[in-house]
Design a protein around this nucleic acid. Structure first.
Length: 802
RNA sequence: GCCGAUGUGGUGGAAUGGCAGACACGCUUGACUCAAAAUCAAGUAUCGCAAGAUGUGCGGGUUCAAGUCCCGCCAUCGGCACCA
């Protein structure tokens, strides 16, 4: 047999698949549909790295298997091409972002094809194409129409280096997601999408989908729903005024000894003239504004604050007066920006009270409040109506009832999730299709004028004050109001990077539609996505955003299901050979092209799946790649050991069926590493026997095909004729997975002392008798008192002897 | 601080409470070769000549039997972080 020439064979079959549209999905087909989705790449200048390959290889294997099982499979790919890195390249090199993007897409496409992924290349989408972003703008306008878009002047996360406003999701940890500079807080008028309105739907929707538990949990934490109570505290000095607080522990209301409001709380401005120590408060406010994110988190334990002289709260159920402080441990952005402080049962309040010498009143027994706050359950004391109760839930319920009856408070819900800051002061993004008219205010661009095209620009530098480069283009900015026809100004901000990716999976179902984002038939046929795989890093951003958009589209009747993804999984990272995260700066990035050139695409595909548990991170190892190369070479060389046979040889039957079962099940469970191991094990047996028959070889090639499509196609075509990927997936018969006899271990007191072979269907007595008949075992239990004998079917016998 | 994941040979990693280390890498020895690479064969947890003993981050426990279950710790990674 000739040596396997991976370059020639892979090129041959890739050409064949291309010319025959082998992986084209057919909308409306009678076959059962299967929509497999992988996260489309951002086409960066660096090209793809092996992490992309691993991310796509999982569902690639599933898709190829599904096709062989008779499914009509949609496995699409596209490019999420708007974004800062491209724009920064453009600024640096002077090449237009359009050109940069096109070049990068060509590069990515070449890399993907070289790996032999079975994408439907007729459905490629590019979020920066007019025909695509037209519908991104359309969705935005629909949201505008439905009151989900608003503008607000607030403190925003601002990256001084990128000169853009960032969403909370993009500034996690106080660092810019793109350039890792420190984020500062800046007051700006920005666009928001009212995602909080969908918080409950996003939370409840999780019950109807199948996400990996940790993915679901991260989303739940991100949405951060808490139930509690709003309670109104009257102000002693101004009987008509009340301060509204939010608490999750209304059961501790009797333990309130002070209140705290955020430094930015509006009540301070309202009573500015009446507050005696206003200068002191102002000074504190200024100090807080200066603190960086870093300082705030570092000084978490050290509580600071100032007592307001001139405003005093009144506990609504005890009538007791309580001082009001301002402190930066209370945020304006959560709840009402004001809290009731219960130092005995909240650690933060406890620290504050200790520092400022405030009373601590215990209302729940069980802790030692001379040392720390007690947050557990216990008997209620000093609490009048709640005294003697021992269950937190019951106490809260009773208190809520009381509050509502007296009209001083009511049950309430809060979310950690904030509304989505939806604009960037940058060029390379979808223009926001809104016109500012001096008379009519914000006016949407009419639907028939979409897409609102991104105008050609020479200079992509953002303005120094954080203005979009579009603001400098008069022909774009100056326009007529679509409503009244007067001179108006066009919005110059663009949408954030996450816009285009929030609905791309819908476009795949009908990518060339000019009348709608996708036809009703296509959406109804394909949606929801049956299985979506991607990175954990997108669980709280892309996944939340796109679910939000989809729920909205469902509400306006544009799509047929509330949830877009029926199932979501995530792959683990590929680390550099040094065990560190791959990064350009560390120089430990592995280029898939190099691997394909040297070892072949099939080897690369097998290796990224074999290197470890798919969901776990694992370091790259060049020497291990060679092991996969060896495996495929041995598959190839088996052609020399081929003998005739239409059926499995009798001694191979159970192993063949077991292997098919193992590989079939492992693929479904994303245990690709053990699936490959099972096939390696099988060919080791063929080598031990020094032969493989045609029936066995055919099955092996079939179940290996999704992993290594090129080499298996080539062998199949040579040996059997025809196209392997058009053949049926291999079946297995559960009853044939076992042999007639089985070797079991025999233990004495839990330690293995021997092995015996027994019939597979042997009963307890037979198995134990066989075990005792074994010489070593017989000798070992000679003269001993047998306490117990256990036979675990098909596994072992354990004899307990003294 | 809170939530989650992980911890097994020299390495990557396997193990529905039932023979720990499948499969692979690496290494050792041998075959082929003038030689090397490739390939093939045998071996490879630790200690021990052996019989045997010990071994899944640490300390306890449950069980005939624990990597797996329970209790208490430690370490690493990821997410959130003064969320009232």
């Amino acid at each position: 047999m000739n040596k396997y020439d991976h370059a020639a064979v892979e090129a041959k079959w890739q050409k064949y698949w291309d010319e025959h549209d082998s992986f084209k999905a057919e909308t409306g087909s009678k076959k059962p549909k299967f929509y497999a989705l992988v996260e489309f790449p951002y086409p960066s200048g660096a090209g793809m790295h092996v992490g992309h390959i691993k991310a796509y290889s999982g569902l690639e294997v599933v898709s190829r298997k599904r096709r062989m099982q008779g499914y009509n499979v949609l496995f699409p790919i596209g490019f999420d091409a708007y974004g800062l890195p491209t724009e920064n390249t453009a600024i640096k090199t002077g090449v237009h972002p359009r050109k940069v993007t096109d070049n990068n897409i060509i590069k990515f496409t070449g890399q993907l094809k070289k790996v032999g992924f079975s994408f439907d290349w007729s459905r490629v989408v590019d979020t920066t194409e007019e025909d695509y972003y037209k519908w991104t703008q359309w969705i935005f306008l629909k949201m505008f129409e439905n009151g989900l878009v608003f503008r607000d002047k607030t403190l925003v996360n601002y990256c001084p280096s990128c000169k853009v406003v960032l969403s909370n999701e993009d500034s996690q940890g106080g660092k810019c997601d793109v350039c890792h500079s420190d984020i500062i807080q800046k007051e700006k008028e920005v666009w928001y999408l009212r995602i909080t309105e969908y918080a409950d739907k996003l939370l409840e929707g999780l019950d109807t989908v199948n996400y990996l538990p940790n993915i679901r949990l991260q989303q739940e934490n991100w949405i951060g729903r808490s139930t509690g109570a709003f309670v109104n505290f009257k102000i002693k000095e101004f009987p008509d005024e009340s301060l509204r607080i939010y608490t999750t522990r209304p059961d501790t209301l009797y333990g309130v000894t002070f209140m705290v409001i955020a430094p930015e709380h509006p009540i301070i401005e309202k009573y500015r003239d009446k507050i005696k120590n206003i200068a002191e408060l102002d000074a504190y406010k200024t100090e807080c504004a200066k603190k960086s994110e870093f300082e705030r988190t570092q000084l978490v334990k050290d509580k600071t604050g100032v007592c307001i002289d001139g405003l005093t709260g009144i506990n609504p159920i005890t009538g007791k007066e309580v001082p009001i402080y301002i402190s930066d441990y209370v945020m304006m952005g959560y709840g009402t920006g004001a809290i009731m402080a219960v130092p005995a049962h909240d650690q933060r309040d406890y620290e504050f009270a200790k520092k400022f010498g405030i009373d601590i009143i215990e209302v729940i027994k069980g802790g030692d409040i001379s040392k720390e706050a007690y947050t557990g359950d216990g008997e209620m004391i000093n609490s009048d109506i709640l005294n003697g109760m021992t269950n937190k839930k019951d106490s809260i319920a009773k208190m809520l009832e009381y509050l509502e009856e007296k009209g001083i408070g009511e049950q309430g819900v809060q979310y950690k999730m904030k509304d989505w800051a939806f604009n960037r002061q940058r060029y390379w993004g979808e223009p926001i299709p809104i016109v500012h008219c001096p008379d009519c205010g914000m006016v949407p661009v009419p639907y028939d004028e979409l897409p609102l095209k991104l105008p050609p620009v020479e200079n992509f530098e953002p303005g120094s004050d954080g203005e979009s480069p579009l603001a400098k283009i008069d022909s774009f900015v100056k326009c007529k109001c679509p409503k009244c026809g007067k001179d108006a100004r066009r919005e110059t901000d663009t949408m954030p990077q996450w816009a285009g990716s929030s609905w791309y999976f819908l476009r795949y179902t009908d990518p060339h539609n000019h009348e709608a984002l996708a036809s009703k038939e296509a959406l109804e046929y394909w949606m929801p996505v049956d299985w979506y795989n991607g990175g954990m890093e997108h669980v709280t951003r892309h996944m939340i955003y796109s679910r939000f958009w989809h729920h909205f589209l469902y509400d306006i009747g544009a799509v047929n299901t509330p949830e877009p993804y029926a199932k979501r999984t995530a792959q683990g990272l590929i680390l550099g050979p040094d065990g560190d995260k791959m990064s350009k700066s560390k120089g430990n990035v592995v280029d898939p092209n190099d691997v394909v050139d040297e070892y072949g695409a099939d080897v690369l595909r097998i290796y990224v799946l074999f290197m470890g548990d798919y969901e776990q991170a694992a370091p790259w190892s060049e020497t291990s790649v060679k092991g996969c190369k060896r495996f495929l070479d041995r598959i190839w060389a088996l052609q020399d050991k081929l003998i005739d046979g239409d059926e499995y040889r009798p001694e191979m039957v159970s192993l063949m069926h077991r292997t098919v079962k193992k590989v079939s099940e492992d693929i479904e469970n994303m245990k690709f590493n053990t699936a490959v191991a099972a096939m390696m094990s099988l060919i080791n047996t063929f080598y031990e026997k020094d032969s493989v028959n045609k029936a066995e070889y055919r099955t092996l090639l079939t179940i290996l095909n999704p992993f290594a499509p090129h080499i298996t196609e080539e062998i199949y075509n040579t040996v059997y004729g025809g196209i392997l990927s058009e053949q049926k997936w291999a079946d297995y018969d559960e009853s044939l997975c076992v042999d007639d006899t089985i070797e079991i271990a025999v233990q004495i007191n839990g330690k293995v002392r021997g092995k015996v072979t027994i019939p597979t269907d042997a009963d307890n007595d037979t198995a134990i008798a066989a075990a005792k008949a074994n010489e070593t075992i017989a000798a070992a239990i000679e003269g001993k008192n047998i306490v117990k004998e256990i036979y675990v079917t098909g596994r072992l016998v354990n004899i307990v002897a003294k």
